[in-house]
Design a protein around this nucleic acid. Structure first.
Lengths: 180, 180
DNA sequence: TTTATTATATAATGGTGATTATAAAAAATC
DNA sequence: GATTTTTTATAATCACCATTATATAATAAA
């Protein structure tokens, strides 16, 4: 993940991965069938980290919908790397069906969590569920995806505070306040 | 652009480009300094097409804000190819500063047009400009970017109608109706 | 028409890096 | 302690493809 996030997907060589891990290519190839398997493992790990961060928030007794969603934003060094990997693979999913499948699979998992947490929010605050719950959920995801790109590419212009504010404003516009 | 959109950025060979153009690599290399120059030209062309589409809408006597920004959505074969190229290059902009610079440059150009058209919308409909005009504009861009990704990757699930509806709902949520 | 210039094709070169093979070292099993 | 298995390193191979070079064809200029 570190190599991909630093060098980009195409410039990622096995030697670089090995060197960063403090071993040689022999050690790396011993554990993976081929390079593709390594790259796919990196993508999988990126998503795992994101989901783990969400789970971590859920463990708190009082968390808001915002807290859950904002874990996807590239605001920490760790999540920045993870989301950079995420972004790097979109280009590849154009041509490689296996990558596309994995991206979609994880996407739906994410989408489900968002919808679920959205329902929790409404119920907690005694707000009747909107008819277009699914649409609201999809809209939130689109907004978050857009913000992730901004945060990654336009880093200096989009520090954590701005990303958070932007997301908060959006959620308020669709009637979701930031309270736990 | 066609080759990139079909095969992906990394799998794009000079031979493929030449073949699709009906010539050999000799003809291609004669007009470009190197492969990178070809790829950059493709990215530039993708943006040019998008901007041209916007200009085309502007030429109509009655157009809405929605009409302008919906041109970015991958709803036609042409815009689909253009936006696929756009997506493919995000991954590359991680590591290659020249790509990142170009992407940012074009992004700001796009952002300016959105802000401008947003002002036009408010003025046309005698709505006072909101204080956070810039934020609204940025939010719209984030939403559109997110929808572009969905449309490209989740194609069958996100046909033109759904993309349009989703965008329309978002705009209404931020107080922008779809009338010309 | 002749010559110069440009366009295209074909072929040769060379670098890069994944993959594979072999060997040595380390760890586990007996 | 001996031997098998696993791990890691080093080296060799091999394919791929951008780049360069050379040759031919087409067009323009004289």
């Amino acid at each position: 993940m570190k190599v991909i996030a630093e060098r980009g997907l195409e410039a990622t060589k096995l030697v670089d991965i090995a060197r960063l891990a403090g071993v040689t290519t022999g050690a790396v190839t011993h554990y993976f069938s081929d390079k593709d398997a390594i790259l796919m493992a990196a993508l999988e790990m990126a998503y795992d980290i994101m989901f783990a961060n969400m789970e971590h928030v859920k463990e708190q007794e009082n968390y808001s919908f915002f807290d859950i969603i904002s874990t996807a934003l590239p605001t920490t060094a760790e999540s920045r790397i993870a989301m950079t990997v995420w972004l790097a693979f979109w280009g590849r999913s154009i041509a490689e069906p296996r990558v596309a499948t994995m991206q979609l699979e994880f996407h739906h998992r994410w989408q489900n969590i968002v919808t679920q947490e959205l329902m929790r929010h409404y119920q907690r605050h005694r707000i009747p569920l909107p008819e277009d719950l699914e649409d609201v959920s999809q809209g939130i995801t689109a907004q978050v995806n857009g913000l992730i790109i901004r945060g990654l590419v336009d880093g200096p212009d989009w520090p954590t505070a701005r990303l958070h504010k932007s997301l908060r404003v959006y959620l308020e516009q669709v009637g979701i306040h930031a309270l736990p």
